[in-house]
Lab assay of single mutants.
Amino acid sequence: KSAVKALFDYKAQREDELTFTKSAIIQNVEKQDGGWWRGDYGGKKQLWFPSNYVEEMI
């Protein structure tokens, strides 16, 4: 599983989504079709976030 870095702040709209700030590192990313991926951040595990808010880390 990979890690991504947030390009923008994102505030969860639902309880199954992540809230994060710009430059946050989201771990254990599971990529899905449809523009939403799952990952771990801030003590939350495998919640959804919009993939267009992040960049992949190499």
Rank of each mutant, 00 (worst) to 15 (best):
K1D: 10
K1E: 10
K1L: 13
K1C: 15
K1M: 13
K1T: 14
S2W: 12
S2D: 11
S2L: 15
S2R: 13
S2T: 15
A3Q: 14
A3V: 15
A3E: 13
A3P: 09
A3I: 15
A3K: 14
A3D: 12
V4N: 04
V4E: 03
V4Q: 05
V4F: 12
V4D: 01
V4A: 11
K5D: 03
K5H: 07
K5M: 11
K5Y: 10
K5P: 00
K5I: 15
A6I: 03
A6L: 03
A6P: 05
A6G: 05
A6C: 08
A6V: 05
A6R: 03
L7G: 05
L7A: 07
L7S: 07
L7P: 03
L7I: 13
L7N: 06
L7W: 05
F8A: 11
F8I: 09
F8G: 07
F8R: 15
F8T: 08
F8H: 11
D9K: 05
D9G: 10
D9S: 10
D9V: 01
D9R: 06
Y10A: 00
Y10C: 06
Y10N: 01
Y10T: 03
Y10R: 03
Y10L: 00
Y10K: 02
Y10E: 01
Y10Q: 01
K11L: 14
K11I: 15
K11M: 14
K11A: 12
K11E: 13
A12F: 02
A12T: 04
A12D: 01
A12N: 04
A12E: 04
Q13E: 11
Q13L: 10
Q13K: 12
Q13M: 11
Q13Y: 06
Q13F: 07
Q13N: 10
Q13I: 10
Q13S: 10
Q13A: 11
R14Q: 10
R14N: 14
R14S: 13
R14V: 07
E15I: 12
E15Y: 10
E15K: 11
E15P: 13
E15M: 10
E15T: 10
E15R: 09
D16I: 09
D16M: 07
D16R: 05
D16F: 08
D16S: 09
D16H: 08
D16L: 07
D16E: 11
D16K: 05
E17H: 09
E17M: 04
E17D: 04
E17P: 00
E17G: 04
E17V: 02
E17R: 01
E17N: 02
L18I: 04
L18P: 01
L18R: 01
L18N: 04
L18W: 04
L18Y: 03
L18V: 01
L18H: 06
L18G: 00
T19F: 04
T19V: 04
T19P: 04
T19G: 06
T19M: 03
F20R: 00
F20W: 02
F20E: 00
T21M: 12
T21L: 13
T21E: 14
T21P: 15
T21I: 11
T21D: 10
T21C: 15
K22A: 13
K22G: 05
K22H: 07
K22I: 09
K22M: 10
K22W: 06
S23A: 12
S23I: 03
S23W: 13
A24T: 08
A24E: 06
A24C: 12
A24N: 07
A24P: 02
A24Y: 02
A24H: 04
A24R: 03
A24F: 03
A24I: 06
I25H: 05
I25S: 03
I25R: 03
I25M: 08
I25L: 08
I26T: 02
I26K: 01
I26F: 04
I26C: 04
I26S: 00
I26A: 02
I26W: 00
I26Y: 02
I26G: 00
Q27D: 11
Q27I: 15
Q27F: 15
Q27A: 10
Q27L: 15
Q27W: 14
Q27N: 13
N28S: 06
N28A: 05
N28T: 00
N28Y: 05
N28C: 10
N28P: 01
N28G: 06
N28L: 04
V29S: 02
V29P: 00
V29W: 02
V29I: 07
V29E: 02
V29N: 02
V29Q: 00
V29M: 00
E30G: 09
E30M: 14
E30D: 15
E30H: 14
K31L: 05
K31S: 05
K31Q: 08
K31A: 05
K31R: 12
K31P: 06
K31V: 08
Q32A: 14
Q32G: 12
Q32R: 14
Q32P: 12
Q32V: 15
Q32T: 14
D33F: 10
D33H: 12
D33M: 11
D33G: 11
D33V: 11
D33R: 10
G34N: 09
G34I: 05
G34W: 04
G34R: 06
G34K: 07
G34Q: 07
G34T: 07
G34S: 08
G35V: 08
G35D: 09
G35P: 10
G35W: 08
G35M: 10
G35T: 08
G35H: 09
G35A: 10
W36Y: 08
W36S: 04
W36C: 07
W36H: 04
W36A: 03
W36I: 02
W36T: 03
W37G: 02
W37H: 00
W37K: 01
W37T: 02
W37N: 02
W37P: 00
W37Y: 05
W37S: 05
W37D: 03
R38T: 07
R38I: 08
R38K: 12
G39A: 00
G39Y: 02
G39V: 02
G39M: 00
D40E: 02
D40G: 01
D40N: 05
D40K: 01
D40T: 01
Y41Q: 03
Y41D: 00
Y41M: 05
Y41V: 04
Y41F: 11
G42S: 08
G42I: 04
G42V: 04
G42M: 11
G42H: 07
G42N: 13
G42K: 08
G43Y: 07
G43V: 07
G43D: 12
G43M: 08
G43H: 08
G43A: 09
G43F: 06
K44E: 09
K44I: 05
K44D: 10
K44P: 03
K44H: 11
K44T: 06
K44C: 11
K45S: 12
K45V: 15
K45I: 15
K45L: 14
K45A: 09
Q46P: 03
Q46W: 06
Q46K: 08
Q46R: 10
Q46H: 09
Q46T: 05
Q46L: 05
L47F: 11
L47D: 02
L47A: 15
L47Y: 13
L47P: 00
W48C: 06
W48F: 10
W48A: 05
F49A: 01
F49Q: 01
F49L: 03
F49I: 02
F49G: 01
F49C: 04
P50T: 03
P50G: 03
P50Q: 04
P50S: 03
P50W: 06
P50C: 09
P50I: 04
P50D: 04
P50K: 05
S51V: 09
S51L: 06
S51Y: 07
S51E: 08
S51D: 05
S51F: 07
N52Y: 10
N52L: 10
N52R: 11
N52M: 11
N52A: 14
N52Q: 11
N52I: 11
Y53N: 04
Y53W: 07
Y53A: 11
Y53G: 03
Y53L: 14
Y53H: 10
Y53T: 09
V54L: 03
V54H: 00
V54R: 00
V54P: 00
V54Q: 01
E55G: 07
E55W: 07
E55M: 12
E55I: 13
E56L: 09
E56N: 08
E56S: 09
E56P: 11
E56I: 10
M57H: 11
M57I: 15
M57W: 13
M57R: 07
M57L: 15
M57F: 14
M57V: 14
I58W: 14
I58P: 14
I58C: 14
I58R: 12
I58K: 12
I58N: 13
